[in-house]
């Protein structure tokens, strides 16, 4: 299964002429993310208020690959939902490309979910074209654009398959293609590779970097996995505390393009261990309230 999903062609982008892209989303458009004083609460069924995020502030320059890590339940998915305009904050503001986010903006920001969330009754091609369809793009153009993105993620010959005929990794690629088809300035990814086996997970990460290298949109990538967070990022943000806020921000300066060989270098380990220690401290501080459910992942890079 892993074998079949592993090769994203490194060949050139589809010619922009053939793809019919407007080029509006990616080139030149501002994908900077500014978050200030964000506080978010949920009300439970007994009408009690739970504050999940408190006074979260950070900024991500346009074209940056940022990762967010934090223990399970710390509010990572919640943060992405707010950035995607799916959920309203109690206070604080989110600006993307200078526009304040109060509702979904599918042409500016798209989300790739952990569960690929493909519609089982649509072919791969029609799943990818869905965002364009809802935006009212004509049939021919949306098919051309969906095909171009599918070529890009290496699924050029699976376009007429149904989701159930794909492996987990392939489904996730379709979901990524669907996220990219509208050429968003910012791509939000909520643990997109969490359901994949370890090998596939890192390979998908490597491919994602290659893809991002061409597209240069801003990516905010949530993960449990420290190695993944460090490997992918320009910038790692750690959500800690309860309610959570951004505790630590680490700039990752490893040169690009990166390949999986980076993961066995001492510098990589040092950085990852530094993050691990900070997370562990946080877990001990708030003893028992958090569970670092993917604890095993912290050891992955050292094998």
């Amino acid at each position: 299964m892993t074998q079949a999903t592993n090769s994203l062609p490194t060949s050139a982008l589809p010619q922009s002429g053939a793809s019919g892209k407007s080029g509006s989303g990616l080139q030149g458009s501002d994908g900077s993310v500014e978050v200030s004083g964000l506080t978010v609460s949920y009300t439970d069924s007994k009408k009690r208020k739970h504050t999940v995020l408190e006074d979260v502030s950070f900024s991500v320059p346009s074209g940056t690959f940022a990762t967010v890590i934090g223990p399970s339940g710390s509010g990572k998915s919640t943060l992405l939902k707010i950035l995607g305009g799916l959920y309203g904050a109690e206070s604080g503001q989110v600006f993307i490309g200078g526009r304040q986010i109060t509702q979904p903006n599918p042409d500016l920001v798209t989300i790739v979910f952990q569960d690929s969330c493909l519609l089982p009754w649509r072919t791969v091609l029609r799943n990818v074209a869905l965002p364009l369809e809802t935006a009212g793009v004509g049939r021919q153009e949306r098919e051309d654009r969906a095909k171009a993105v599918l070529e890009l993620v290496g699924l050029g010959d699976c376009m007429s398959r149904f989701p159930r005929e794909l492996s987990g990794g392939m489904k996730q690629r379709v979901a990524i293609a669907r996220g990219l088809v509208v050429e968003p300035s910012v791509l939000l990814m909520d643990e997109p590779f969490a359901a994949l086996d370890e090998q596939t997970r890192y390979e998908m990460g490597e491919e994602l970097l290659r893809l991002w290298d061409r597209l240069k949109s801003t990516v905010i990538f949530v993960t449990h996995n420290l190695s993944e967070a460090v490997f992918l990022a320009d910038k790692v943000m750690v959500l800690e505390g309860r309610p959570a806020s951004v505790g630590q921000t680490v700039d990752v300066v490893f040169s690009r393009p990166r390949d999986l060989g980076l993961m066995v270098t001492p510098e990589f380990h040092m950085l990852r261990d530094q993050l691990y220690t900070s997370l562990k401290r946080d877990r001990i501080r708030s003893s028992g309230t958090y569970s670092w459910s993917h604890q095993g992942n912290s050891e992955e890079g050292t094998q």
């Binding site: 995607g84 509702q103 599918p106 969330c117 369809e133 809802t134």
Partner: peptide, 23 residues
Amino acid sequence: NERVLARSYKMSRFQFFWKIFVP
């Protein structure tokens, strides 16, 4: 999941009916 998806693409009620609910 499908609802969140629909919302994130700003589907209208009408689009939700035909593209998500009916199938």
